[in-house]
Amino acid sequence: MKQKRQPQNRQKPPSKPFYGPFPDARSESDVASDEAKHAPHQIAVPAALAGSGALDRLVETARDYARQATAENTNTAYAKDWAHYTSWCRRRGANVLPPSPELIGLYIASCAAPEAKAPARSTRALSVSTIERRLSGIAWHYQQRGFALDRKDRHIATVLAGIRRKHARPPVQKEAVLAEDIRAMIATLPFDLRGLRDRAILLIGYAGGLRRSEIVSLDHGKDDTLDSGGWIEIEDDGAVLFLRGKTGWREVEIGRGSAEHTCPVHALEQWLHYAKIDFGPLFRRISRDNKRALQARLSDKHVARLIKQTVLDAGIRSELPETERLALFSGHSLRAGLASSAEVDERYIQKHLGHASAEMTRRYQRRRDRFRVNLTKAAGL
């Protein structure tokens, strides 16, 4: 006779401790993606009020406005910073909330001098600027959760000061695209629809001293799309760009050039005519057969890729290996190129670029004023 098997008292395995607002099973990239959408918007109906459809709609509206408080790229970067920090805390069994200056001091020390046994993706020491940006991202996320992080606390401030003193390096600036460079770059482009678009992007970006995000955010007219970052008005003497930048709205005047093949306004008119654009995003994706412009707005990453590719095709800085040449140039090369090439009073460049201070403008002027004033000779030597 078979004996009845007694049920075993199996103990439920303990769940993993949860040391932050994110489950351990999710990857850092998933966390960062989700945070970029939701983290800045810890906005809800007050507990004292009863919920309703109207209040729920107001909550969504308030969250939409909160998303616009910082640039999309900033939100994405801060989300990655927070995901990295929370992952670092989880691996050490530390609580993320409430903020601990002592813990954050250890974290930034780990970023500057990674542990030898850390995962391979974490072994690379971060630059001082990246550590400072991560600290800003962490502080921002704590603020969204109702906590204040005192970055002047000695556990953070003294460690960061030591990191700056030991590891700080001169800032690495991207190479400026000068006038002869931009002429060589546009000469590599064909005269098909894609070539017309890319030529207009390079010339408008250069003559306007624009960031790549500003270039692709432009619409044909005012209020054409919800995600518009500005619009353009073409006049007889040139074009006026109305831009929503980091410092607010500003107007940028782009005059007509001295030659038709290098005129940014003419290049833009050609693109708009053959792409048949009279409404919506100014710069768009193109169909695979290269015969029509699509409705989708172009990504700002295309601008960076375009600059790098045309720099290679034009043979700029050909004395260097290809990898070094690619690393030298980026979207900011157009902005720095205008500031370095335009031989006009500095205050006009400052206004054109939308800088709040002349000091910021001078950072963009690559070697423009070197030795223009020789104090050695002026001192009698």
Results as ranks from 00 to 15, higher is better:
E235K: 15
D219Y: 01
A200V: 05
R244G: 06
G221P: 01
S228N: 01
L193A: 09
M185N: 05
I186Q: 14
G229E: 12
L196T: 14
L189P: 13
S217C: 06
I204A: 04
A187D: 10
Y206F: 15
R197A: 13
I204S: 11
D198S: 08
I182N: 02
V216W: 07
A239R: 03
G195R: 09
I201N: 00
L210W: 02
R244C: 01
D237S: 14
K246Y: 03
D181L: 00
R211V: 10
R183S: 14
D223P: 02
T225V: 12
D227Q: 11
R199A: 02
A187F: 08
L193I: 07
E180D: 10
G205H: 08
D223C: 10
I215E: 15
Y206K: 03
A239C: 13
G229N: 03
L218S: 05
D227I: 07
G195Q: 13
R244V: 02
E180Y: 00
G230C: 14
T247L: 03
P190N: 11
L210R: 09
V216N: 08
D237N: 14
E233Y: 07
D192I: 10
L196Q: 15
A184F: 00
F242H: 14
D237W: 09
D227S: 15
A200F: 03
S228W: 13
R199S: 04
G209I: 06
H220D: 06
R183Y: 00
G221A: 12
D227K: 13
S213H: 03
A200M: 07
K222L: 13
W231M: 02
V240N: 04
E214S: 15
L210S: 03
D198W: 00
I201G: 05
A184C: 02
G230A: 12
L193G: 03
S217T: 11
G205Y: 10
L193R: 02
E180A: 01
L189Q: 10
A187R: 15
T247R: 10
T225K: 01
A200H: 00
G208D: 08
T188N: 09
L241N: 07
W231E: 09
G209M: 02
